[in-house]
Design a protein around this nucleic acid. Structure first.
Lengths: 153, 153
DNA sequence: GGAGGGTAGATGATCCGTCATTGATTCCGC
DNA sequence: GCGGAATCAATGACGGATCATCTACCCTCC
């Protein structure tokens, strides 16, 4: 290949990142679905709803909180509605909009799933990082996020 | 929620990571498909094949190189075969197995896609990280990978 | 009050990824 | 050799993510 490829150091770092970024979500997803029957995206939506006053949110609020595309959320809500985890309700104040409410089954699911998920995050990531490593890792992630969102470093 | 949630520091780091891990692959994917019509998984497979002697690999070799599940690769190869990027051939030495070969179209695609993709990786990640940050980031990723693959730290 | 632009959300198509299963072959011990 | 275990790979079903498009409604300005 012509052009400048990554340096050896960069390439190693990049491949290590790629490896982590494929293994970690897969592991979390597996833990979650085995232990509680929830998927990771379902979990994330349920967290938002369970923390909301009245356990109700507008779809666009969930999108903002999770940095999701609107259409992704819409599909996700359709599946979760089918599974009885959430329900959709009309929004009288804004005829275009809708409300998403946490069902009893949804509240139940998130309640029993959370401890195991948090434990997995801790076990797979934070137990492995020293205080300094955690800070450095966060800083690197933040720098990359800044590049991605066009903000100055 | 009962149980111990993450500390404030951990939570912030976790959310930053989540944000990056959703934005970065999406950005790379977008760049790649807009500039060259390839998807990120397609690109990764093509890289392996293009670097292989004779541009031929056994499926399980690609799996090992990319840390992919076998079935994931099989589906991916089916799609790529349909698009004419790779071809499958019989393996006479091992009747169970198969060969995957890079087609001319596939070689073409990877050749024209690589420079832009490398530039994007550099621009979005390595241009944003100092030497030290890059090293710290890699070290953290490696520690997490170790946790995920059950190896000692 | 009507037209036009912007916003909220749903939907279909397509690709991606995992799990469970299956088919075929090779390897190994007896 | 032969029978069972392990290996290589394909497939169907399903959930996930993106893109393009569509509908419906709100809001503003004339």
């Amino acid at each position: 290949m012509s052009g400048d490829w990554l340096t050896a150091d960069e390439q190693r770092a990049w491949r290590t990142y790629l490896r982590m970024s494929s293994l970690l979500p897969a592991a979390l997803n597996r833990q979650l679905s085995q232990d509680s029957g929830l998927t990771l995206p379902e979990y994330e939506v349920l967290v938002q709803l369970s923390e909301a006053p009245g356990q109700v949110l507008r779809p666009f609020q969930i999108c903002e909180a999770l940095n999701w595309e609107q259409s992704r959320l819409s599909h996700q809500l359709t599946r979760m509605q089918r599974r009885g985890l959430v329900a959709r309700q009309e929004c009288e104040a804004d005829g275009r909009g809708a409300f998403v409410v946490l069902t009893a089954a949804g509240a139940d699911a998130i309640g029993s799933a959370a401890p195991g998920h948090v434990a997995a995050v801790r076990r797979l990531m934070f137990d492995r990082l020293s205080e300094d490593e955690r800070a450095a890792f966060e800083q690197a992630c933040a720098a990359i996020v800044a590049a991605l969102t066009g903000l100055p470093r």
